Simulated assay, not measured.
Amino acid sequence: MTFQDRLEQQMKATSIKGIDIVNKLNVSKGTVSQWRNGVTKPGGENAIRLAKFLRCNLTWLIEGKGSPNKNLELELGPDLRGKAPLISWVQAGKWKEIDVNMIREDVGITYYQHTANVSDDSFALRVKGDSMTSNTGGKSIPEGSVIIVDPNLSAEHGKVIVARLEDSNEATLKQLVIDGGSKYLKPFNNSYPTMPINGNCTIIGVVKQVIQDF
Rank of each mutant, 00 (worst) to 15 (best):
F3H: 03
D5V: 10
Q9C: 03
A13T: 01
K17R: 15
I21P: 00
N23E: 15
N23C: 02
N26K: 13
N26P: 00
S28D: 13
S28A: 09
K29H: 12
G30F: 02
S33E: 08
W35I: 00
W35H: 01
G38L: 09
G43E: 12
G43Q: 11
G44K: 06
E45I: 15
N46H: 12
I48R: 15
I48C: 13
R49E: 12
K52L: 13
R55M: 10
C56Y: 10
L58W: 08
G66V: 10
G66D: 11
N69I: 03
L72K: 11
L74R: 14
R81W: 02
K83N: 06
L86Q: 13
W89G: 01
A92R: 06
A92M: 04
K94Q: 14
K96H: 15
I98G: 10
M102L: 15
M102G: 06
D106Q: 08
V107T: 13
T110F: 07
T115L: 00
T115Q: 08
D120V: 07
D120Q: 09
D121E: 13
K128T: 09
D130F: 12
S134V: 10
G138M: 00
P142V: 01
E143G: 15
G144W: 10
I147G: 04
L153Y: 09
A155R: 06
G158L: 08
V160R: 04
I161W: 05
R164F: 12
E166V: 06
E166T: 04
A171L: 02
T172G: 00
T172W: 08
L173T: 05
K174T: 05
K174L: 01
Q175V: 08
Q175D: 02
L176N: 10
K186T: 12
P187D: 01
S191Y: 03
Y192A: 02
P193K: 01
T194Q: 11
M195S: 00
P196G: 09
P196S: 04
N200W: 09
N200Q: 07
N200F: 11
C201N: 04
T202E: 15
G205R: 09
V207Y: 10
V207E: 04
